[in-house]
Design a binder for these strands. Structure first.
Lengths: 164, 164
DNA sequence: AAAGATTGAGTCTTCAATCTTT
DNA sequence: AAAGATTGAAGACTCAATCTTT
């Protein structure tokens, strides 16, 4: 009788897994938008830059672009131009790799360190406000645990008896 | 002594809320990439088109662009060109709004309905495979419940002592 | 030939400015 | 003037092709 209801069922985003996905997308979209807006309103660079700078800062030694690519899950051509943008205001330094003539080593500059440090409190404040304010510590802990199952790039380790 | 450790602490993505955020980003990035790759490999349009088509299909009547904008959380200028792309292969139809001369009504076409229906099994298969294979039904249920707290666009209704 | 990285051309996104109707 | 929507120009992303070194 009710075509409307038939339609909803046919479209069917009803399985538990799909429910998770829909809400994952919405949460990500909402929070990411808030973070980017806050950074911009403070005159700071986009979040993407933060990830690059953080990764470079964590490894005190210079990294090859290939390594960054894998850590940040970015395509090679994409990263190449992202690094161009970071190099222009001298947040990073690119130098030849003495060990391999094809490669270049990427190093964070003092200005890059300072920029990341300036971004952090803004970034942190929005995430804490946008997540911490909606979840108890217990809930956040549970959620982090469950998301860890989805976050890793590896195949599901032993989900249905899969091998390594 | 250990500058390395000092550094890690200062960077501090350690709070429960931040842990949630980092894993949320990674999960989203990983699954989204899988979905887009699967759609492309089947010669289907990007996921973004699916969301527009689904929203139009759900409301059997034509929608104004402004309404779509709010449902999909897209910027006006962004949606305008997205609709251009959907209109070119005639997946949607734009007609003048009799009730308001400024507005145009967006309607899904038969071809648009068919396209969404073709995308769905691919979309569904990847999400089920990428989420369902890693979580038990119980875990998926818990996760969906927790993500619901983060997903809504409203302010945290009454975060400290929330009601239904 | 394969790996690391970059580039040209085309597509998509973003911002501000614009156009039309209310 | 404000709301709904679109557009020009500049920036960013994508793909395939390219360059250099291994």
């Amino acid at each position: 009788m009710h075509m409307h209801i038939d339609c909803e069922m046919a479209i069917g985003a009803n399985s538990p897994a799909f429910q998770v996905w829909v809400r994952l997308v919405r949460s990500h979209q909402r929070i990411r938008h808030e973070v980017e807006a806050a950074l911009k309103s403070e005159g700071l660079p986009p979040l993407e830059w933060y990830d690059v700078l953080l990764e470079l800062e964590r490894h005190n030694e210079p990294l090859r672009a290939r390594d960054l690519e894998q850590k940040l899950l970015l395509a090679q051509y994409n990263l190449s131009r992202l690094l161009d943008r970071l190099e222009k205001p001298r947040l990073i330094i690119r130098r030849p790799d003495p060990a391999d003539g094809r490669s270049r080593l990427i190093q964070i500059s003092d200005k890059g360190l300072a920029t990341r440090r300036n971004m952090w409190p803004v970034y942190r404040r929005v995430v804490e406000g946008s997540i911490g304010a909606r979840l108890t510590a217990l809930q956040a802990n549970d959620l982090a645990g469950l998301l860890a199952l989805l976050a890793s790039s590896d195949e599901p380790a032993s989900a249905h008896g899969a091998s390594a």
